[in-house]
Simulated scan of single mutants.
Amino acid sequence: MSAIYHNTMAALDKIVPPKLQPLWTHPAGPKTVFFWAPLFKWGLVIAGIADLQRPADSISPSQSGALLATGLIWSRYSLVIIPKNYSLFSVNMFVALTQSYQMYRALSYQNQMKNKASSEK
């Protein structure tokens, strides 16, 4: 598998335009996992944005909390590794932001239900 990857990269090296060579050869460029992992992680952000339409009673606070925590942890990590990975930072900040809003919605809903239940007693 490694030979296929290296042969593919060698072939692509020849066709990448000179203007894009700095990006192509960057330590966090398309030849590395530092580029592809954040790119595919945007799927979590898209899913989180789509979940903003879900009713608040169907939001899992534990799932949102876990995603919020990982977003914050990986955001910090992306700034202390070498090379710094700003695309990883941005995607994880978006994960953290969408999940913090979901947490707010879930906790607000739970508080409303508690208040409603206590006022009915």
Score class of each variant (00 low, 15 high):
R76Q: 10
F40C: 03
H6Y: 10
T98I: 05
K41V: 15
K19W: 09
T98A: 12
V33T: 13
W24D: 11
H26S: 10
L12D: 11
W36T: 04
G65E: 03
F35P: 01
L39F: 08
M9N: 12
P30N: 05
A50Q: 03
K14I: 07
Y5G: 06
F94S: 12
V33H: 01
W42K: 09
A50R: 14
M113G: 11
L20G: 04
P22T: 04
T25G: 04
L68K: 01
R54F: 01
V45Q: 02
P55T: 14
D57N: 11
N7R: 11
S78A: 13
A10C: 03
Y101R: 04
F35W: 12
A117Y: 14
N111S: 01
M93V: 15
K41D: 12
Q112Y: 11
K14V: 11
Y104R: 05
Q63I: 15
P61D: 06
S119K: 13
I49A: 11
G29A: 03
P18W: 07
S90V: 06
Q110F: 05
S75K: 01
L20Y: 15
F89E: 05
L88P: 00
R105L: 13
T8E: 04
I46T: 03
K41T: 10
Q102N: 12
L72Q: 02
K31M: 06
F89I: 00
P61I: 08
G71R: 03
D51N: 14
P22F: 13
I82N: 07
A117T: 14
Y104H: 13
A96L: 03
W74P: 00
S75D: 06
F94V: 07
H26E: 14
L97P: 01
Q63A: 11
K14F: 00
G65C: 02
A56D: 13
I82C: 09
S78N: 13
R54Q: 15
S75E: 11
S58L: 07
A69E: 00
S78Y: 05
L97E: 02
T25M: 08
A28E: 09
L23M: 07
Q63Y: 12
P38D: 00
K31L: 06
Q99L: 02
S58C: 07
S90M: 09
I46W: 05
L72D: 05
G71N: 07
M103W: 10
A69S: 07
I46A: 12
I46Y: 00
P83E: 01
A66S: 05
R76H: 14
S100Q: 04
L88Q: 06
G65M: 07
V80D: 02
I81H: 00
P30C: 12
Q110V: 02
W24C: 09
M103E: 08
T70I: 14
L52F: 14
N85I: 02
V33S: 03
Q112W: 10
F34Q: 02
H26Y: 13
L97D: 01
S108A: 12
K31C: 04
T70R: 00
Y109V: 10
V80A: 06
L20P: 00
P17I: 14
Y5F: 10
A106I: 08
M93P: 05
G43F: 11
P55V: 11
M103V: 15
Q63L: 15
L52Y: 15
W36F: 06
Q53W: 10
P17C: 02
V91T: 09
G71P: 06
W24A: 08
L39V: 15
W36L: 05
Y86I: 04
